[in-house]
Simulated scan of single mutants.
Amino acid sequence: MTERYRPNTTVAWVVKSPEGFLFVEEHKRGQVLFNQPAGHIEADETIIEAAKRELYEETSLRSDPAGLVGIYQFPSNDNSVIYVRFCFYVELDAAPQLHPIDPDITACHWLTLEQLDRKLLRSPYVKQCLVDYMQGQRYPLSILTCSLIN
């Protein structure tokens, strides 16, 4: 019998403003890492609810997603876990002052792609999501059907 596939499902955001793209700074295993606002889906929430919650917890920003950049499947750095990441996007008219609520996030930054290239990333998919967005990859939220009720 084949082992059942059980990926960790996560959500992430590409948030664009006139100041750049939003990234969060976190300290993991003695390193300063950069990521999009991102996190895991909890048992009692839809994919979109999880995205909105993670964005708020990591940055204090409340926003609805404008659409989806893509869905990504990839292994952890040590190949012990497989992730499926739903990456959303939103474009802001101004860059608000942000402050992390989640204690694992130490700061929020507005960065350009060039500035991001000088940072250590949580995973290669941080940059991949941004590049896909910058190349115009966008899908309407209507491609998702999110319901927790039969």
Rank of each mutant, 00 (worst) to 15 (best):
R62E: 15
G136D: 11
I41C: 10
P18T: 09
P140D: 11
G39I: 02
G30I: 08
T9K: 04
M1L: 14
Y139A: 13
V14M: 05
L120D: 11
E3K: 13
D102F: 01
I47P: 00
E19F: 12
T59E: 01
S147P: 02
I48F: 03
E58W: 02
R118P: 10
Q128P: 05
L61C: 08
N77M: 04
D102L: 07
L68K: 10
S63N: 09
I71T: 09
Q97C: 08
I143D: 09
A107I: 06
D64E: 15
M134G: 09
P96K: 05
K52N: 03
Q73P: 04
R29N: 14
P75D: 06
E49A: 10
V90D: 06
Y125L: 00
Y56G: 11
L33A: 04
S76H: 06
V32L: 12
A66T: 02
I105V: 13
A51T: 08
T2Y: 09
Y89G: 12
G20T: 08
D104E: 13
F86K: 01
L55G: 08
M1H: 12
Y89R: 13
E58P: 05
L141I: 07
C87W: 05
C108Q: 06
L33M: 08
W13V: 10
Y89W: 07
L98Y: 01
I143S: 08
I143A: 12
S142V: 07
E57K: 09
L98D: 03
P103E: 11
I47R: 04
P37H: 04
N150H: 02
V15F: 06
S142W: 02
T112R: 13
L68P: 14
C146N: 11
V126L: 05
T46R: 00
I48Y: 04
L61T: 07
R53E: 10
P100H: 02
E57I: 05
W13T: 14
Q36N: 08
G30R: 11
K16T: 04
V69L: 05
V32R: 15
C87V: 10
P103R: 10
K52C: 05
Q73H: 10
F34W: 11
M134C: 11
E91Y: 11
V69W: 00
E58F: 00
L55Y: 00
F21C: 12
A107W: 04
L55I: 07
E54H: 09
T2K: 10
R118I: 03
R122K: 13
V14L: 02
G70H: 03
E57P: 00
N77L: 05
I143G: 11
E114W: 14
I41T: 12
H27K: 15
P75V: 05
P96S: 04
H27E: 14
D117K: 15
